[in-house]
Simulated scan of single mutants.
Amino acid sequence: MGELGILLITANIGSLCDKPEEIQENWFRELNETVESCKPVFIALHLQEFGGKEYERNMEAAEMLLRMLMDNEELSSYDCIQAFADTDFNQTNSFTALGSIYLIHNSLHKIQIYDFKEEQFVPLSGRNLCLGSLDDCPLVHKERFPQDFWTEFPWTRKGFMRTRWQIHNRTFDLVNLHLFHDSSNLVSCDSSPSLYSINRKKALNHILTRLQDDGTVPFFLFGDFNFRLDLKSLTLAQGWTTRKTTERDNDSILYERDGEVKLLVQCKLFEQKNVEIFQENNLQALRKFDSEPSAYLSKVTESQISFPPSYPYIESITGPSEFMCTRCPAWCDRVLMSHSARALLGKAEIKVRYDQIGAHVCMGDHKPVFLHFEMDLLTSNHTD
């Protein structure tokens, strides 16, 4: 029966919503070029921070960006579209600022989406846009994480959104998620694993439990995991001496070697001084400190990463590959999958592409990340 190209993309669009006039042209061009290069029949685009940091002011403009995407002439052959956007920020107990857009090529006919209320698959046709709280939309399962997950910190709009699909003889879940971030570099450096890492583990296990309770359907998790490097282990490995100071009411940690400051860390400052491990040609050396995913290896897996960290880039067209000195570079944006979902990638994983979008242009503080694979329709549909 052949293979079908599947393209899964995750993009934190906070910068795009806050500064559309600076980033929009690059963002759409790079997205279009990725689609043209992969030529998939099914595209799943998961968005986080829909509306940006100032979502009350920018939500209407964000909805316009979504409509522009749906009207994109470069993607006109994807004439069946299903989009969901959690835009009702007045729903303070459930707002997640997540958006999920699914584009189906006109050559793909055997595709259905799951109705969670009726508990059955239903056919798709035309262009469908669901905006608002989404609480009454039966085609999507959305949750905001419970407030008691983070008693030490202000409650945020983090959560997840799930859809279920059937393509030919394949059934799988697609989960858009946004996990808790590191709000202070000082706290991140304090322990291994960090307090934030422990909080993210609680949130991700919550999602995995929800998926497990709902059966054994293969699933892909792609979004802003906010996974960060183990900073305590990283700094210890460099053999630096540590000195704590307070300047201008800012608590600081100075990491030094031979009296020279190599790294200055404050709550929202991560300023390194020509440290080899952070230089562009050595970024893969950071991978050994990318330890957060290892806690979930019994339940999920990931294709091999060969691209630079996806965050935090400066939001300027003059330095599209430069990191901001606010956080340690990290692979925040990723595509993980259950072991049964990995079987859908087929045996020839050499054909699988796992990469960034817009590596050499400004896309905002996050670089979108994609996974493209050819789904073999001849193999039976495995379960976990």
Rank of each mutant, 00 (worst) to 15 (best):
M1P: 11
I6P: 02
A11W: 14
N26T: 09
E33I: 06
N58P: 11
D71M: 07
S77A: 14
Q82H: 00
A83H: 05
A83I: 03
A85C: 07
A85L: 06
T87Q: 06
D88T: 05
I104T: 04
I111E: 01
E119R: 15
Q120K: 15
F121H: 09
P123Q: 11
L134S: 05
H141P: 00
H141L: 12
E143G: 00
R157K: 05
R164M: 11
L174P: 00
V175P: 05
L177W: 04
L179M: 02
H181M: 00
D182H: 13
D190C: 07
A203L: 09
H206F: 14
T209R: 12
D214E: 14
F220R: 03
L221I: 01
F222P: 00
L229V: 14
L231F: 08
R243M: 11
R243C: 08
K244L: 05
E256Y: 03
E260M: 06
E260I: 13
C267R: 12
V275S: 02
F278A: 00
D290C: 13
Y296L: 04
L297F: 13
K299S: 13
Q304K: 15
P308N: 10
P312H: 08
P312S: 07
I314A: 03
S321D: 12
E322I: 12
T326S: 13
D333Q: 11
V335P: 03
S338D: 04
H339F: 05
H339Q: 05
A343R: 13
L344M: 13
H360A: 02
H372A: 10
L378W: 05
N381Y: 03
N381L: 14
T383K: 14
D384A: 08
